[in-house]
Each structure stands twice: as C-alpha cells, then as structure tokens.
C-alpha cells in the first residue's frame, strides 16, 4: 500500500507527511483490472478498498501530529508575559503596600510573629518569606553594580542592582497567586519578565540620577528566614530607587 503513496516529506521529529489521494485511487484501479477477477467480485472488492481508503483518509485528516516543542511554544506565546509583568510592575509601585524596613526589623527583633506573618509572603512550605520593604537611606558608596547605603538606626544595607533574579520581587509583592497559572513554568516566567523590566530598564535609569552622598527612597524586596540572626547586614533587591 505504501508504494501508492507519494511521500513528500518524512521527518522522525515532526512526523508530517502528505498523501496524494488521487494517485492512490488510480493505482488501485490498475491493480483491480489487472487481477482478472469476475466483474461482481471486482465491484465488491473495489467498494471495500475504496471504503477502506476513505476510512484511512478520514482518520488521517482527523489526526494532526505536532512536535511537543512546537506545541509548547504555541502555548507559551498565547500569553503576553511582558505586558502582564509591566502591569504588575506598575501595580507594585502604585499600591505601595511595602512595610517600613525599620518596622519589619523591629518585629523580627521582638519575635513578633503575628506582624512578621502579616508583612511577609510565603507561597508554600519553607523557613523563609519574602517582604516588600521601603526606607530612606544615604548612599555611602557606589561599587559598580551595588550601592552601600545607610538607613535609619545606622543600618547598613547592600542594594544589589546586578543580581535581580528569581522570585523574590514577585512573591514579596503578594500580587500573584500560584493558582493564577496552569504550570509552575508559566508562574516562573512572570518573575523573569518582571525582573528584566526592573534590572534592565527601571533601575539603570534611576541609577543615572544618584551618586554617593545622595539621600534616596528605596522600595525593594528582602528574603528573611524565621530565625534571621543577622539583621544588620541586609541585602535588598531594589524595585525603585528615587533621589530625594
């Protein structure tokens, strides 16, 4: 049967092929006439073969085989992660639900678990949570992609403007739920998009306007463990830096 098919293209990865149906039926006609059977038998045989061919064609047309990579790409492209993340970034800035850093650290120092839980966001099981914080601070030093700043209470902060990666900002915002997305991969893509906006656009622009000695307002995300011992040397992932 396969000889009657005109196989245009076979690829083990994509599994696509095209059948020229008319060629197949013509070939079958030749086979039947050359067989030398009685006319009645020939008609019955022809009917069976044509029905079989039609069934094969119907099945072939109702099944579409596509590579998983292509399918995954199509699924992903249905959702505009960049736009979603841009809106999320604006929402984070507009809502300004960030807690004052000094207030959060006092809660840790006093083991005020109720407030620690209120300020933080943890998606699943673990000993750490993410916090959206804000503070005013003086820039002591600009070290390449880091700012050393001094916040209220002589607290030294490390503002890491280079390694803005991971889920810290998304989760600290508390604005995105795991159930909003069908897969963990999609959920993580939000972080990648959001981080790109902050790391590659927002922060570099804001850094151009500040220098050592300036006083700035910072909104950022911090990860703190339940038993966070070192509250003096904290690293903050910045979301917004603005000169006062």
């Amino acid at each position: 049967m396969l000889t009657a098919y005109n196989l245009k293209h076979i690829n083990y990865q994509y599994f696509t092929f095209t059948v020229q149906h008319s060629t197949l039926i013509k070939s079958l006609n030749h086979i039947i006439v050359l067989g030398g059977c009685s006319l009645k038998k020939l008609i019955t045989m022809k009917k069976i073969i044509i029905s079989s061919v039609l069934a094969v064609v119907a099945i072939y047309n109702s099944i579409y085989i596509e590579s998983l990579d292509d399918l995954k790409q199509k699924k992903d492209s249905n959702f505009d992660f960049a736009k979603y993340s841009q809106d999320l970034y604006q929402q984070i800035l507009a809502k300004s639900q960030a807690v004052e850093l000094s207030q959060l650290l006092s809660s840790f120092a006093e083991n005020d678990h109720a407030n620690i839980a209120k300020y933080g966001n943890r998606l699943g099981i673990g000993s750490s949570a993410y916090y959206l914080v804000k503070c005013q601070a003086k820039i002591l030093e600009v070290q390449g992609d880091r700012l050393k700043v001094l916040a209220a209470g002589n607290r030294l902060l490390d503002i890491d403007t280079k390694f803005i990666f991971g889920n810290a900002i998304r989760d600290a915002s508390g604005l995105v739920k795991l159930t909003d997305f069908k897969t963990t991969a999609e959920f993580n893509k939000i972080s990648e998009s959001l981080n790109t906006i902050i790391r590659e656009k927002a922060i570099p622009e804001e850094l151009k306007t500040v220098k050592a000695g300036d006083t700035i307002d910072i909104v950022g995300a911090v990860k703190l463990g339940e038993k966070q011992h070192d509250l003096l040397n904290l690293s903050v992932l910045p979301i917004k830096i603005s000169k006062i």
Binding site: L123, F165, G166, N167, T183
Partner: peptide, 26 residues
C-alpha cells in the same frame, strides 16, 4: 516531580527547583 495537568492529582508537593537554581546560578 510535577505532572503537566492541574486537574488530575489531588495535590502536588514540589521542590521550588527554579528558585533554588536561580541561587545556584548567582
């Protein structure tokens, strides 16, 4: 390990592999 269906298992308890490897990457 996660399965690619959010309506089959009653619940999926999974390591946060992505975040963990972001930290390894840094």
């Amino acid at each position: 390990r996660e399965i690619n269906n959010d309506d089959a298992a009653t619940s999926q308890i999974l390591s946060d592999n992505y975040s963990g490897c972001v930290e390894v990457g840094i």
